[in-house]
Design a protein around this nucleic acid. Structure first.
Lengths: 206, 206
DNA sequence: CCTACCGATCGGTAGG
DNA sequence: CCTACCGATCGGTAGG
């Protein structure tokens, strides 16, 4: 039905609606397989089979396996970075947004699997996403450090906590909890533990 | 020289000294390659080449790739679990030992790479080390929770911190920091950040 | 988008 | 421990 509607729409618009829909299907399938077995062990044939095309068919949309990887990362990055980069001078408000991301991730197992698998894989200097993750962590840590610095300036950060160390801790807690959450079948209360962690650093209620 | 000495020793003892030495070489090479590219993407041929034998030669020592993986994990597990399982009723003392492990890891990049790569890979239910890591985390979390419970009973844990949540946080911080440390070329001060993290939970000096 | 194919590589076995 | 081999699978290309 959907396919028929899309085909009709394509005829109507004369555009590339089908191609765009197919690309989305491929990106979704690639995200899931990369998350399950990592980039290196994932095969283009398996991804193609999951969307019902041949693997040369897939390569028509993404010229190489590496291009597919970068497209998956680019697409999946938008939400999280936007959330933290949105301008705000309220440190505690920014930390609340971090908690919101954690809560959101609870309902996006595929995304969590993707980043857990790829971040670990990309610590290898020869991995095609090595530079991507190196920069991603640098930016994330800078943004979270800023949130804690603002919190400190507003007098809401506990004494003896340095913004840089607090940021390294928070980012680490989030990554580490995702690992625990994936390993124990979603029983870990990621949101609750992160909230408790941040609350213990502040002198005000969250 | 070493090879010659070993050969001489083998002739003297008539035992399996060479075989044991070869097994150690294989386990070291496997640890390094598993840590670099993960288990699935590592090849027996590459590991064998690094110790100067053929890949059927490697299979003479370890019958399957999976057996090699489990042997690597078994061997590398001893230090850490022993450190935490050693009997002590002093919670703060146990937490100090955790810091010692982090400090030790700073000088064992290969081990850190191994666990970071394999833990993420093993979140997949079909991974041969899935059960191993599931149990490893359960045991580690139980041991660390006990350390915080003892700390609490001794009146050295800050108010409002639950032992179970504190344990999940500490294990998560350690795993997450390893990721940051690997990605930024060892610049992250894992030991300092973990010490600061634990210190902030306690009412006594570390 | 397809079939057909390329050279390379995989884990494991046969047989010594 | 070796050489030689097995069937399976890989990313990518040719040519339509």
């Amino acid at each position: 039905m959907t396919t028929h509607d899309n085909a009709a729409a394509s005829r109507r618009t004369g555009g590339y609606a089908n191609g765009r829909a197919r690309r989305q299907q491929i990106l979704d399938a690639a995200m899931n397989l990369f998350g399950d077995v990592g980039y290196r062990s994932a095969s283009l044939r398996e991804i193609a089979a999951r969307v019902g095309i041949s693997h040369p068919g897939l390569l028509h949309h993404f010229p190489t396996k590496e291009a597919l990887l970068l497209a998956v990362l680019e697409r999946r990055d938008e939400i999280d970075t936007a959330t933290l980069q949105e301008d705000s001078d309220d440190g505690v408000e920014l930390l609340r947004r971090v908690i919101d991301i954690v809560a959101l991730n609870t309902h996006r197992r595929g995304v969590v699997e993707l980043y857990t698998a790829l971040a670990a894989e990309a610590t290898s200097a020869t991995h095609p996403a090595h530079d991507y993750f190196t920069q991603r962590y640098r930016h994330t840590l800078a943004a979270v450090t800023r949130a804690y610095r603002l919190t400190h300036e507003q007098g809401h950060l506990r004494d003896g906590i340095s913004p840089a160390a607090a940021a390294a801790q928070l980012v680490a807690v989030m990554d580490g909890l995702q690992l625990q959450w994936l390993l124990d079948g979603g029983r870990t209360d990621m949101t609750g533990v992160v909230r408790e962690f941040i609350a213990a650093q502040l002198t005000v209620a969250l």
